[in-house]
């Protein structure tokens, strides 16, 4: 019988040291999707700690939003697995995955713009309340206790972002920055364990971006959830992310802390191109 030799395999994922020993909120293994033979995203491996702020960066067209679409089951992966809080989400519909604890915002704002600010938040709250259709009818016509609770919770959430005075405004009529914030509030209303933000600082000026950074940290600390964000604003990414994944041509080319990423020659090459010899 041959001698048994075991070698350590380097771990493929990194998480903040305080989250070691806790189950990662989100984990992917060899995640990939093909569109008609074209591999848009391939072999994505990462893990996110339950209180981590993590960045997903990469040049345009690298497949960042595709990864978000895979994580929320908008697309079904052609290979690999996604574990959300330890559960495999294969084959589930996006609404089921949302109720399991993942929420997101969109690159281009997608609020229910004809509804009031309060209703936008309550949509998120309602779907994640455990009441059936019948009770929604029987309770619906009167101003029931559950409805009152939902109102209070929604206002509570809006207060956290200083938006409670806007609650009766039509969502579509809000200024751009407020719409961006409302999208985050709506996502938080679904009580996620991890929040995905797709370019939250797009179109914001430096002072708004600074406020956003502060808000992202406050969300993590108050709700004790993980946050994963796609962003092109490097000040924001380097400023708040603990771990960063860099994507290029649908593959992860680097993983590490902001300092490691800043000095990684592969990342510099992906963003700026190869140095001429």
């Amino acid at each position: 019988m041959a001698e048994r030799v075991m070698v350590p395999v380097p771990p493929k994922a990194i998480i903040p040291s305080r989250d070691v020993g806790k189950r990662p909120i989100l984990e992917t293994h060899h995640l990939g999707i093909e569109f008609g033979g074209l591999k848009a995203v391939d072999d994505i491996d990462f893990a996110i700690g339950p209180s981590e702020i993590c960045g997903l960066i990469g040049p345009n067209g690298a497949g960042k939003t595709t990864v978000f679409n895979l994580l929320t089951n908008v697309y079904q992966p052609t290979r690999g697995t996604i574990l959300l809080d330890g559960y495999d989400t294969k084959g589930l519909t996006p609404d089921r995955v949302n109720r399991m604890g993942i929420a997101r915002t969109f690159q281009n704002i997608r609020l229910f713009s004809n509804m009031s600010v309060l209703d936008n938040v309550k949509i998120g709250l309602h779907a994640n309340m455990k009441t059936g259709f019948l009770s929604s009818i029987t309770h619906g016509f009167g101003y029931s206790k559950a409805e009152k609770e939902a109102d209070e919770q929604a206002i509570e959430l809006l207060k956290f972002f200083n938006m409670e005075h806007l609650k009766d405004h039509q969502a579509g009529a809000l200024p751009y920055g407020a719409q961006r914030r409302l999208e985050i509030v709506r996502a938080l209303a679904t009580k996620p364990g991890i929040l995905l933000l797709d370019e939250p600082a797009a179109g914001m000026n430096p002072s708004e971006t600074a406020e956003l950074m502060e808000n992202i940290r406050r969300i993590r600390d108050k709700f004790n959830i993980a946050i994963m964000l796609i962003e092109h604003d490097m000040n924001l990414v380097m400023g708040i992310c603990e771990g960063i994944c860099v994507l290029n041509y649908g593959r992860i080319i680097a993983k590490g802390t902001p300092d490691e990423i800043k000095n990684n020659p592969k990342v510099i090459e992906a963003y700026l191109g190869k140095k001429a010899e």
Partner: peptide
Amino acid sequence: EDRQAAELMGISV
């Protein structure tokens, strides 16, 4: 208003 966004907010389409 937006089927996909609704689905991602936990509404069963």
